[in-house]
Design a protein around this nucleic acid. Structure first.
Length: 260
DNA sequence: ATGCCGCCTCATAGGCGA
């Protein structure tokens, strides 16, 4: 089962590039972030015509996550538990069943948190505490699971071309990295780092200042796998070439292959 | 020190992103 995550930075702007990449990559499941669309305006038909089931959790103008899956999407749940006043659309989860086992797939768009310090950074840290709570709850269940999406976290210096430039940024500040590390340390596996070590692997390049041409990127789109899920990991890759194509998002897809 | 670029919208300027 091939599962991909992709922050598309607006479904309307990626109406050609997203299906083009999917036709090439042939993922079984796609976890989308920043659809920037309300549910009723998401062009589900485009994907349904290609054999995907579609579940969205959208909002107007900002944020928004979605699941596209060739397998049925069961027990769909929207919104990260822990704060009934949080109306930002950043979390969706569903169960898919492969040939061997069921898998709980959680799609997330973690808050950016800039400027830091400040209320937006506080919201990011609060959100990460809730994410840790959800991870703990899922670990108590029997179903293997993964949590994937745009984490807006640079885990280590090797995950940025210019780590010094990010030192005080909400994506790299110690409080944010520590919160991420605390979640991983529950027993989850960073799928990319389970397969590939060393610097120079990025999933985001800013539109500004020629970042792509200079390969001035950061790795902020991640797969965290539960122990039972990590046992099924066959591969994890970043589709970096997508950044150089026509009208790209500033993020590229990251995908895993699971024997499940 | 800031903007760079590109997304969005009760748009044509301003908020947001990373």
């Amino acid at each position: 089962m091939k599962i991909a995550t992709f922050n598309i930075n607006g479904i309307k702007a990626r109406i050609d590039a997203l299906p083009a990449w999917m036709a090439d990559a042939e993922p079984d499941v796609v976890v989308l972030q920043e659809i920037k669309s309300m549910d009723e305006n998401f062009p589900s038909e485009i994907f349904e015509e290609r054999g995907y089931n579609v579940e969205t959790h959208g909002q107007k103008s900002f944020n928004g996550v979605a699941l596209l899956s060739k397998y049925p999407l069961e027990d769909v749940s929207r919104g990260l538990p822990g704060d009934p006043d949080d109306d930002q659309a950043r979390w969706i989860e569903a169960t898919v069943t492969g040939e061997k086992d069921a898998l709980r797939i959680c799609g997330l768009y973690l808050p950016n948190g800039n400027p830091a310090p400040g209320p937006k950074f506080d919201y990011k840290l609060d959100w990460m505490a809730r994410l840790e709570g959800r991870a703990r709850a899922l670990l108590d269940e029997e179903t293997p699971f993964l949590m994937t999406g745009d984490y807006n976290i640079i885990p280590q210096a090797e995950d940025a071309a210019r780590p010094d430039a990010w030192r005080d940024d909400a994506l790299f500040r110690m409080e944010a990295r520590t919160a991420f590390r605390r979640i991983v340390n529950l027993g989850l596996t960073d799928a990319f780092r389970a397969r590939t070590q060393g610097p120079g692997h990025y999933s985001f390049w800013d539109y500004q200042a020629g970042a792509w041409n200079k390969n001035d990127g950061i790795r902020i789109d991640h797969f965290l796998l539960s122990p039972a899920c990590a046992d099924r990991l066959k591969d994890c890759q970043i589709d970096r070439d997508v950044r150089g194509k026509e009208k790209p998002s500033d993020h590229v897809p990251v995908w895993i292959e699971l024997d499940i």
